[in-house]
Design a protein around this nucleic acid. Sequence first.
DNA 1: CTGAAAGCGCTAACAG
DNA 2: CTGTTAGCGCTTTCAG
Lengths: 363, 363
Amino acid sequence: MVTLVEVARHAGVSASTVSYVLSGKRPISDLTRRRVRDSIEQLGYQPHAGARALASSRSRIIALMVPLRTDMYVPVMLEIAVAVATAARAHGYDVLLLTGEEGPAALRRVTGSGLAEAVILMDVQLDDERLPVLRAAGPPSVLVGLPGDPSGLSCVDLDFAAAGALCVEHLAGLGHREIAVIGEAPGVYARHTGFAERTLRGLRDRAAELGAGLLHRPCEGGHAAVAGVLARVFDERPGVSAFVVQNETAVEPLLALLRRTGRAVPEDVSVVAVCPEPVAAQASVPLTSVAIPAQELGRRAVERLVTGLSARPGDIGPRGGGPADGGPGAGASPAPGVELLAPVLTIRDSSGPAPAGRGGVRS
Amino acid sequence: MVTLVEVARHAGVSASTVSYVLSGKRPISDLTRRRVRDSIEQLGYQPHAGARALASSRSRIIALMVPLRTDMYVPVMLEIAVAVATAARAHGYDVLLLTGEEGPAALRRVTGSGLAEAVILMDVQLDDERLPVLRAAGPPSVLVGLPGDPSGLSCVDLDFAAAGALCVEHLAGLGHREIAVIGEAPGVYARHTGFAERTLRGLRDRAAELGAGLLHRPCEGGHAAVAGVLARVFDERPGVSAFVVQNETAVEPLLALLRRTGRAVPEDVSVVAVCPEPVAAQASVPLTSVAIPAQELGRRAVERLVTGLSARPGDIGPRGGGPADGGPGAGASPAPGVELLAPVLTIRDSSGPAPAGRGGVRS
DNA sequence: CTGAAAGCGCTAACAG
DNA sequence: CTGTTAGCGCTTTCAG
């Protein structure tokens, strides 16, 4: 392996000069810089990651914790993960992939060993067991998702409450008075996953404001489950003229079942989804939907992290520094606070005016 | 940060003893071992990853390269990635997530810098540009997937050719004489992705052997695309009584369209899929299918890698380093060779005897 | 069975 | 603008 010292020798300079050429942390004459760069090139030099991490206490690695269970939102998860990796690279960071399996211990491990200098958490739950680790002088971190108590934490997420409200507004504006919500699998709610509950709150609150009826039903994925839920919905509320779906695996079954039971979309029934764009656009009826901006979420998470990280050397936080910081996690955390991306509703072919006979257009 | 020296002091032993307690590379008396372990516990000691990597030339990190484009097989990809991460942890390794974006350069980077000591490649193409890097004294590596020329490389994959053959056998056994294949998006074939072509070959070969007609059509995801393909299929070959689908996003649209055009599954038309189990099981008609064993693939890949890696001494030569020191890939690669997992066909509700009037039961 | 000590390759004060 | 020099924390000879 070719080392920095060899490069220095080859270029006729000292080791530190090579180091500084690489880091740009002090002025270097053009001539020297060129010489060093040439030597690096010729020798095919690559700095040793471990040595760097040891000497600088910076590993340039961000740990990304993805959920172990892949029972939901799988495409979104991968898309976020890839976006995180891509954005991280753009800032000179690499990404370490952690599964939820080890739980909080994994965070302690990668962080305590200096393997990763920061973490991004996906699939955050309302009362997430990993959060205490982050709060207690933990490593710089950003959550993709919103826990019950985000105080002292940095979070990025879609504003699911607003997304829910937006769906209801759209449907109410079209005259729908009875709306049914096909939600995530019961397990998702049981785990108290923030986004599902927030969406529901947004839906309910706006429905109440607008005087529309709202019926919510969790739903496992797959055709059979959707069939069951759908039957019960129409049984309980025959006047339902619109659906909001937040469950990727329920989208096609729902459309198929509506079709089969003789309900045309959007003439008889409107459908609005909260899902990734491709799912909505490629559905058998292109769906009016609120997109889940996976790429954007990943990118933002990394950016929050990196802006904090780069303001590093032994200095107090650049802005709004927390209380006394002295623990091992003295690294500059990103500014705490919640960043909610505004939802965007795209109108496609699945939503239309409420049928006159059913819900009754509001006068 | 608490260091090994502090642990040593606390336990009243030397630094090397602590190190050896940790590595188990030399006999330690029970008493000493217990004392050291206690100190480690009490002080909450965690070895510094960078220092370790530097001193031992082993980072205990495996790089996993996932495809950048997430246009296909997304759930499978994530499942494999998670399986890799989980299996790696079980062997004491962590996983670095690389996207295809940087291409071969990423491999050189993480490998040349000692960041990762081995790599796993997903979504391998027939003539993959990353392979030269691996062949030329590259790092220990395993491919999930099969390139055109796997010589000198270690690969794990489902035996897609056998999977294809299996599908045809099953259908032919049920009396179907005209089979249509709904394949991956044209882009997948254009990129010469191995698995798609191998499946096709398996399908064609066995169909020829059994004297069945086979019509193959690549297909973009989504309802509209499938509708177009389907129409043309029945136009060209009205006698088609069975479908093989290898495209997750085409499964539901296909079923919906068959239904809508009055073809009952499996009474009029049989459908067999090559896809992950959940997709097949949750379809609107539970599908007879050949599973893609994502977990197994991830696990095997890691195991191949690790068995090679552990048979590797700490480092190469004595100090005073000789100049002739192989490239970065001086490590022990896993035994080259291709490991193909045997496909398993699970019969569900979507396949049945060919209708008498259509394809004509073989006498 | 245990200690002492020499680095691994790099960064970041200190000196010019 | 550049060089010298301590380490960063750990592994691994070499001695005992």
